[in-house]
Design a binder for these strands. Structure first.
Length: 835
RNA sequence: GCGGACGUGGCGGAAUGGUAGACGCUGCGGACUUAAAAUCCGCUUGCCCUAGGCAGUGCGGGUUCGAGUCCCGCCGUCCGCACCA
């Protein structure tokens, strides 16, 4: 028997066995309780990276554990295969997006197989195939019929040189990433899903998601942004029309010092026709991207229209009306009133244009003096506000709203930060929207029997813009309604639509419909969903909405798709750079004494910060190379060790080598097993404590703690003398680590002549009676400082503990004759003597 | 700018308000070896260093018999911000 675990032969041997026996088929045990374990499916970018490995290893441990604890497990894998990178590759490498994507999928699938994940590959899917997106088109049409889909004008980033729509990430410092031309905001007619109709239930539904991280629920709640406020109109002096605004702070209405409208507000547009300077300013406002981060970090600018708005509570009081770049027509009413003393953005604006800063909320204990160099946004009571003076903020809000409603100039309104979901993309590599535009009939849904609407293959990426739009024949069709020549919709769907229901298709994949209701419901909701925290809002909110929309149209009886959510951290790595500032990859550098040098020419290299692994910084490691060298199990083990899974994991060579050593240690330990007799009580207790602890830790996804416990048990076995207990402990240890290091466990299991696959073995049981220790070590403190520890029988009563503590010589020395004022005793824990 | 999180030895981290540093890594010393690798044993928060003591969980306050943990205020880092996925 070799004295080393040979991962080259063992990994492949057991992967083949699992395949042959369909060990991970979801249909294998139809009578068992069902468990659905899902990791967020990857975008097929070309190669698996370590972040994927970490994500799927966590899911795999849970899936294997669930199988061992008697569940039928659905653990599928697929590909989020539509999206921009394929189009970029098409432009740069002159390869068709489909060819590129499918080649990437084949490569990445082979990579995943080498790691031994327990995926049921028979359910694999790729969103770029008509077998998937055709069903998505059917669902879109059902939602259209149910009134959940509509069209409206909405702004996009427009590159005037490339004549193309840009994604936010393609806008760099306000310029197109390829052309370098300043980006403009341009309005296009686009398709929207009515997610706002579900805003209330998406918000209240968060309360039921008890197994989601609080931070994700809070982020979603803030994103949905329900707020109660006052909607009212300012009369305009010398004009007959009004400006309608909404405010969540009507209590500060006497602190208002200006009104601001969006550059696209009807009043701004009208005035700009006669005011060239305003027209210039509005054009400048439009010369920026559409992203919120960009708009809100831009310098606040405004243009005084000369109009005056009349204060609703004082006809003598007028406010200047500005056009401002931070007010957007898409949000609320496209107009706001500014209260500089109590809103930081308004404060900056007022400071710049020399507008009054009237304090109307005073903090506890101040007299309401003017605010200093920033707005006051805290709690307090109302001042300088006539009939509101002295009220608390909430009372003042209610008073103003009541008066507005009584006097008829405004009304209480609930508004949402959440906006409807714009799903139109002016791109080729996405799901075609199954709509036909007819001059006579308008937008006509494609009849379902004509689905799928398949993307044309003969496209060209030589000229920028949407290839579907430029295709000579694809969009030319007859109207399904009147038969006259008409035109296909050439926008495709946001890829977030694809990922909003893939977890349902995994559970049920008939040919003739998106999924079978009963079969899907038998698996859903997903028991445990695992993915990156970067998806905390958009993907997860869209998937929650889509599921509710499916329920709304009667497709599935389910509100929440993901019962439990876990967001894992990133994988980070040291960075290195050369003298000229360019990044160096880990295999381009080596240690030179205390410093680093470049291997190629011996010039010094600088070790930089630890950062998220990324191609651009070259601090990536290639899973293939690592698996070749150390084997799948060492990589898996390292992914689970040390770092808590929700935090970032630092990749290091020392770490993976440590994991590899552990694999070999287990191999040697199994080789040392013998047929000795006799019981080892201490080891038996340790074993049962470990069985209980590891099970708990895996269920809580605290893999690093489970790993630490397995290390402790391994240490204990190695030190133990031969006994029947020791032999049994080695065998059980294999079961405990089999979800994490399955190839090693199978190989050792066979080496011990155990029957069958360890993947099919049941999880070991523990005896609760064996978990309890007879003796405990208690801390003895004097004035809160540790002075001694005592070992006492478990459950010793308080008086006896106090007596034992006072009997300690070290304690008496610390007390030094001072009178004891009080003694605090926590049974089985500590004694604190207070002087 | 707005929203959310995180911060503990040389490093990753552990710790129901109750012995801070489990477990792993690194480093140092030792055993084995002709030698090396592998393996095994010991030490590894800092300071004063003798039994022992003092300080210590990003910084500054507070609550408590007792705070890494709870509260208030800072600083730093990371994630998201609706067309990256």
């Amino acid at each position: 028997m070799a004295d080393r675990f040979n991962h080259h032969t063992a990994d492949a041997r057991w992967q083949k066995r699992w395949d042959e026996e369909a060990s991970f088929s979801a249909d294998r045990y139809p009578d068992r309780p069902k468990s659905y374990v899902l990791e967020m499916f990857p975008y097929p970018s070309g190669r698996i990276h370590i972040g994927h490995v970490r994500n799927y290893t966590m899911g795999d441990v849970l899936a294997r554990y669930k199988a061992m604890t008697g569940h039928a497990v659905l653990h599928p894998m697929g590909w989020d295969a539509f999206g921009m990178p394929a189009e970029n590759a098409a432009m740069e490498k002159k390869v068709h997006p489909g060819t590129w994507t499918r080649a990437n999928i084949a490569h990445m699938k082979a990579q995943l197989k080498r790691i031994g994940f327990s995926f049921d590959w028979s359910r694999e899917l790729a969103t770029c195939e008509p077998e998937y997106y055709g069903h998505e088109q059917a669902l879109f049409l059902d939602m259209y019929a149910a009134g959940l889909v509509y069209r409206k004008e909405s702004a996009v980033n427009w590159d005037p040189v490339d004549m193309t729509v840009l994604a936010n990430e393609q806008v760099i410092d306000g310029k197109g990433w390829r052309s370098g031309a300043p980006v403009e905001r341009r309005k296009l007619s686009q398709w929207f899903l009515k997610i706002t109709e579900f805003a209330d239930e998406l918000l209240s539904g968060l309360d039921d998601l008890k197994d989601w991280p609080d931070k994700v629920r809070l982020m979603q709640s803030n994103w949905i942004g329900k707020s109660q406020g006052l909607r009212f109109s300012f009369d305009l002096a010398d004009r007959s029309d009004k400006v309608e605004v909404f405010s969540t702070r009507p209590d500060t209405i006497f602190g208002a010092s200006f009104v601001a409208v969006a550059a696209d507000h009807p009043i701004a547009l009208e005035l700009a026709e006669k005011d060239a300077a305003l027209a210039d300013f509005a054009a400048e406002c439009r010369r920026s991207g559409t992203s919120a981060a960009e708009l809100e970090t831009a310098e606040k600018k405004g243009y005084d229209t000369g109009l005056k708005a009349v204060h609703p509570l004082d006809p003598e009081w007028t406010l200047p009306v500005y056009v401002a770049n931070f007010v957007l027509m898409d949000y609320g009413t496209g107009a706001v009133f500014g209260v500089p003393a109590h809103d930081q953005r308004d404060f900056e604006f007022a400071s710049k244009y020399d507008l009054p800063i009237n304090r109307v909320v005073s903090a506890e204990g101040d007299a309401g003096e003017p605010v200093g160099d920033s707005a006051y946004t805290g709690d307090g009571s109302i001042v300088n506000s006539r009939f509101l003076d002295g009220m608390a903020i909430e009372d003042a809000k209610k008073t103003v709203i009541d008066r507005a409603e009584a006097q008829g100039w405004g009304e209480a309104t609930t508004t949402w930060r959440l906006r409807d979901w714009g799903v139109s993309r002016q791109r080729y590599w996405g799901t075609p929207i199954p709509i036909i535009h007819c001059d006579a009939c308008g937008a006509v849904p494609v009849p379902k029997d004509q689905l799928p609407i398949v993307l044309p293959e003969d496209i060209d990426f030589e000229t920028p813009g949407n290839p579907l739009d430029r295709h000579p024949t694809w969009s030319r069709v007859d109207c399904p309604s009147c038969g006259n020549p008409a035109r296909r919709e050439t926008d495709t769907l946001d890829t977030f639509v694809d990922s909003s229901w893939y977890f349902i298709r995994f559970a049920s994949q008939p040919d003739d419909k998106p999924f079978d209701k009963a079969e899907a419901e038998s698996w859903l909701p997903v028991g445990q969903y695992i993915g990156g925290v970067e998806h905390a809002i958009l993907h997860l909110l869209y998937a929650r909405f889509w599921t509710r929309a499916l329920r709304h149209i009667g497709m599935i009886d389910l509100a929440e798709p993901f019962q439990s959510l876990f967001t894992q951290g990133m994988v980070t790595h040291q960075t290195w750079s050369a003298g000229d500032g360019s990044w160096l990859s880990p295999d381009e550098v080596k240690k030179d004494g205390a410093d680093w040098m470049r291997i190629s020419d011996g010039t010094p290299a600088t070790a930089g910060r630890v950062e998220k692994m990324s191609k651009s910084k070259k601090n990536v490691v290639d899973p293939d190379a690592i698996i070749d060298q150390y084997g799948a199990d060492a990589v898996r083990w390292f992914m689970l060790s040390d770092s808590p899974p929700e935090r970032d994991l630092l990749w290091s060579d020392a770490g993976i080598e440590g994991a590899w050593r552990f694999v070999q240690r287990i191999w040697r330990l199994v080789g040392s097993a013998d047929a000795a007799q006799g019981e080892d009580k201490a080891l038996l207790r340790k074993l049962h404590q470990t069985i209980a602890g590891v099970g708990e830790d895996i269920e809580a996804l605290s893999f690093n703690k489970a790993v630490a416990k397995i290390y402790e048990l391994t240490n204990a076995v190695e030190k133990a003398k031969p006994s029947a207990t020791r032999t049994e402990t080695v065998r059980t240890l294999l079961l405990l680590l089999s979800p994490m290091a399955p190839h090693l466990a199978e190989e050792c299991w066979a080496r011990l002549d155990q029957d069958g696959l360890i993947a099919d073995a049941p999880w070991p049981r523990f005896d609760p009676a064996l978990l309890v220790e007879d003796e405990v070590t208690v801390a003895i403190q004097v004035k809160g400082k540790l002075r001694d520890t005592l070992t006492v029988p478990k459950g010793l009563d308080k008086d006896a503990m106090e007596k034992a503590a006072l009997a300690s010589e070290k304690v008496q020395r610390s007390i030094d004759g001072a009178p004891v004022r009080k003694v605090i005793v926590v049974p089985d824990r500590l004694v604190n003597i207070v002087l």
